[in-house]
Write a protein that binds this DNA or RNA. Structure first.
Length: 475
RNA sequence: GGUCCCAUCGUCUAGUCCGGCCUAGGACGCAUGGUUCUCAUCCAUGUAACAGGGGUUCGAAUCCCCUUGGGACCGCCA
């Protein structure tokens, strides 16, 4: 990739038939990285030629989530607003007799395919009507096909895969339009890529089989060929194309769960690409743009590993300053019904920050911090540390209560609490004898932040209340 | 079934183009240990791979061939 500037232009072409898929986001990201790195333009093209399946709400979801990811486009088009352009070119091919009407029924075509499978032949349709003209009735039930008279190899140089060749005859007379104003995918793509002056077609490798058809169309239309860059697919844990049965596939789901856009950007960029310097993984979007290079794109597909995503999100969450982290947690606390009017933001900030190293994604915050907002619920035996007796437990809790009662509200801070309680805990011979019951009394959980941190946030009054409740539970 | 693509630890990958520096490196995960009870963080250590078979060569993870495995596509969807 040496041709730095010369009007580089790429595009992402989603079809609004579902929510923004992780795979589409991945392709969009690579297009974006390519455009930004090589100083080109990034075009957004909504491929909504299928009127039955396209919906406005999906278009909105796709655009919104792409923006959430930080992918902004320089130009945007909608195929449904460009039908006139396609019609012109379809007419041209019809006139030149490189396209024709085919009025075979779908049943007939299906029969043909079955027969071919039986004979172990390539499934293709070489149309008997390629040189005929339909009558009035027939034209209404016809579709338009490309008259493929090419023989031999059709090859192209893929920037990641190298040379790829197909046999022209095996393609058959493929379809290009439902009717004169209803272009089909392969045709619309070729016309648009030419009209929009796309220089590099960077897309998922599932499009490799479409490429020879598109090349044939380009030749017939007299367009020049763009550069092709087919990137590896994202697979599920079972190594098949990522789909619903592997779990969440829409970007919005990850956004809602509380994965940060920076995480997604970083994580997706590392699926099928790697910077030159080995070992670099956590990178800002600017760094990724700077280091991105087509020659470092992987040839083989990558599995979407949620474990690594979680780890990475944790890394990003920890980097946030506590104010920002608390702000991001708010909607999740609210949704869980934990936010009461009288709570001050300083309290929430302190409570939430204790869990900052513990949550993998923002939605985990509600369950993790619940005990700060309401009385902990737990069974009495949970207070027992190892082989401790009930009497011992009560003595220890009463002892702590005594110490705490004597602490002045004004000197209520972590250092002070620790200074006064730790020696007592040491005194028992096993710190756990005091620290474990104390912590459980405060949080009601087997796993939580330490007792001093929690006490510091809860305040003297609430702490005494909870210790009292723990003592009561064991009487 | 046809066509095309791919092949290093469980996963993401470095190394492959320009054979020796590879007793194959890093990260996630997992395991163990350390840091005030638990958990998390952090730190340390460990775990684990060149799909198989032939060549070429003094020497192959790296080059060639075959086999095997995996995937994608085959629509009047995109």
């Amino acid at each position: 990739m040496e041709n730095k500037s010369e009007n580089i232009k790429v595009r992402i072409a989603p079809s609004p038939t579902g929510a923004l898929h992780v795979g589409t986001a991945h392709t969009a990201l690579f297009n974006f990285l390519f455009a930004k790195h090589y100083g080109g333009r990034f075009v957004m093209r909504i491929e909504d030629t299928d009127k039955e399946r396209s919906e406005e709400k999906w278009e909105k979801d796709i655009l919104e989530n792409l923006k959430w990811l930080g992918l902004e486009w320089d130009e945007i088009y909608k195929q449904s607003e460009r039908t006139g352009i396609y019609t012109q070119y379809i007419e041209k091919l019809l006139q030149e007799k490189t396209a024709f009407y085919c009025w075979h029924t779908q049943e007939e075509l299906e029969q043909e395919r079955k027969a071919q499978a039986k004979k172990k032949e390539a499934p293709r349709h070489i149309c008997a009507y390629r040189d005929s003209a339909p009558d009035e009735n027939e034209i209404n039930t016809s579709i338009i096909r490309f008259k493929n008279t090419h023989t031999g190899k059709i090859s192209f140089e893929d920037a990641v895969k190298g040379k790829i060749s197909f046999t022209a005859e095996l393609l058959g007379d493929f379809s290009i339009a439902k009717n004169i104003s209803g272009p089909l995918y392969n045709f619309a793509v070729v016309v648009d890529d030419f009209e929009m002056k796309i220089t590099h077609v960077l897309r998922g490798e599932d499009h490799i089989p479409n490429t020879p058809k598109q090349i044939l169309l380009q030749r017939a239309l007299g367009f020049n060929k763009p550069e092709y860059i087919h990137i590896p697919l994202i697979l599920g844990a079972d190594r098949s194309k990522l789909s619903k049965r592997h779990g969440a596939t829409s970007v919005s789901t990850y956004a809602k769960s509380g994965y940060l856009p920076d995480t997604m950007f970083n994580f997706l960029s590392l699926l099928g690409w790697r910077p030159k310097e080995d070992g670099k993984e956590i990178m800002t979007s600017d760094q990724i743009i700077k280091e991105f290079a087509v020659e470092d794109i992987q040839k083989s597909p990558a599995i979407f590993d949620i474990e690594k995503l979680d780890w990475m999100n944790g890394q990003y969450l920890r980097k946030l300053d506590t104010g920002k982290f608390a702000e991001l947690c708010m909607p999740y606390l609210k949704e869980a019904g934990l936010l009461k009017e009288e709570l001050d933001t300083e309290f929430i900030k302190k409570a939430v920050s204790l869990e900052q190293t513990r949550v993998k994604k923002l939605e985990d915050i509600a369950e993790a911090t619940e005990f700060f907002f309401k009385e902990p619920q737990y069974e009495a035996p949970m207070l027992i540390w190892k082989q401790m007796t009930k009497e011992e437990l009560i003595n220890i809790l009463q002892n702590v209560r005594g110490i705490i009662k004597n602490i002045d509200e004004k000197s209520w801070n972590m250092e002070e609490l620790e200074k006064l309680i730790m020696p007592e805990a040491e005194e028992t011979g096993d710190r756990g004898k005091m620290l474990w019951p104390l912590r459980v009394a405060l949080t009601g959980k087997k796993a939580s932040p330490g007792p001093f941190e929690v006490m510091n946030v809860l305040g003297k009054e609430e702490v005494l209340k909870r210790i009292e409740a723990a003592i009561e539970k064991n009487k």
